[in-house]
C-alpha cells in the first residue's frame, strides 16, 4: 500500500467526485420527474397511452446500461445525418451522452417502481375518494400518488444507489468521474490496488450518505406507522 500515490492524485479524485455527483443527481432529478407522469400513463387502461410507455420501459430495463451508452455515444455518432444536425452540438459531448443514457435508464426503472406503488393502493382508499366525489386528477394528487411514493421509497433508495454505481460506466466514454480518475492513476503508477481502493472508499462514502438521507426521509414519511409516544405531560 503506497499512500503517496493516493496523496499525489487526490485532486484528480476530487474532480472525479464532482463529476460523479453531478451526473448522478442531474440524471436522477430529471429521471424522477419523467417517471411520475410515465407511471401514471403506464397504469392507464387505454392501450394507446400505456403501450408506448410499456415499450420504453421494456427496452431500457431489458438492455444493459453500458450497451445503451455505447448506442448513444458511438452509435449515433456514426450517422452523417446526426453529425450535421443541431443535435450534434450536444451529442458531441461525452458528458451529455452519459447524462442522456443515465436519465433514460433511471426514468425507466423509476417508472416501474412508482407503478408498483400505484398498483398497491388499497382499493378502499379509492372507493372512499370516489364516494366523496373526488375527480380523477384530485384523487391521483391527494390519495394515490402520496401513498404510491411512500410505498415506493425503499425500492427507490435502491435505484439511487444502483444509479451511483452504474455511473462508473461513464469512465468508458472518456469521462473522468471517480472511476475515470482511478483508471488514470492506475495507468500512471501501474498500481491498481491503490487506485481502485481509493475509488471504492469514495463510492462507499457517497453510498452511506445516501442511505442515511433515505433513512431520515423514511422516518418522516412513515411517521404515522410508528407506535404513538405519549409525552409525560400528557399522561399527567
Amino acid at each position: 500500500m503506497d499512500f503517496s500515490i493516493i496523496a499525489d492524485s487526490f485532486g484528480l479524485y476530487i474532480q472525479g467526485l464532482k463529476t460523479t455527483l453531478q451526473l448522478v443527481f442531474i440524471s436522477l432529478a430529471i429521471g424522477l420527474s419523467m417517471a411520475v407522469p410515465l407511471a401514471v400513463f403506464r397504469t392507464s387502461k387505454n392501450r394507446l397511452i400505456s403501450g408506448p410507455v410499456r415499450a420504453y420501459v421494456y427496452f431500457f430495463r431489458g438492455t444493459p446500461l453500458l450497451v445503451q451508452m455505447f448506442i448513444i455515444y458511438y452509435g449515433l455518432g456514426q450517422f452523417e445525418i446526426v453529425r450535421t444536425s443541431f443535435l450534434w452540438v450536444f451529442l458531441k459531448e461525452a458528458y451529455v451522452c452519459a447524462l442522456l443514457a443515465f436519465t433514460l435508464n433511471t426514468a425507466a426503472y423509476t417508472t416501474e417502481i412508482i407503478r408498483g406503488g400505484i398498483a398497491g393502493t388499497p382499493i378502499g382508499e379509492i372507493e372512499a375518494a370516489k364516494s366523496v366525489g373526488m375527480s380523477r386528477g384530485l384523487m391521483f394528487r391527494r390519495i394515490i400518488l402520496p401513498g404510491a411514493f411512500r410505498r415506493a421509497l425503499p425500492a427507490y433508495s435502491n435505484e439511487v444507489i444502483f444509479m451511483l454505481h452504474g455511473s462508473s460506466l461513464a469512465s468508458v466514454i472518456t469521462i473522468i468521474d471517480i472511476t475515470g480518475a482511478a483508471r488514470i492513476v492506475n495507468s500512471r503508477y501501474y498500481s491498481p490496488y491503490e487506485a481502485f481502493l481509493t475509488a471504492a472508499v469514495f463510492y462507499m462514502a457517497i453510498t452511506f450518505t445516501l442511505v442515511w438521507l433515505f433513512k431520515k426521509l423514511e422516518h418522516r414519511w412513515y411517521a404515522h406507522l410508528r407506535p404513538q409516544e405519549h409525552s409525560a405531560a400528557a399522561a399527567a
Binding site: Y74, G77, Q78, R83, W88, K92, V172, T174, R183, I184
Partner: peptide, 15 residues
C-alpha cells in the same frame, strides 16, 4: 483518454 486505439479512431472521425 481511450481504452483502445480503435475507440480513439471512432471519436476522431465523429469529430
Amino acid at each position: 483518454r481511450y481504452g483502445t486505439q480503435d475507440e480513439a479512431y471512432l471519436d476522431l472521425t465523429a469529430g
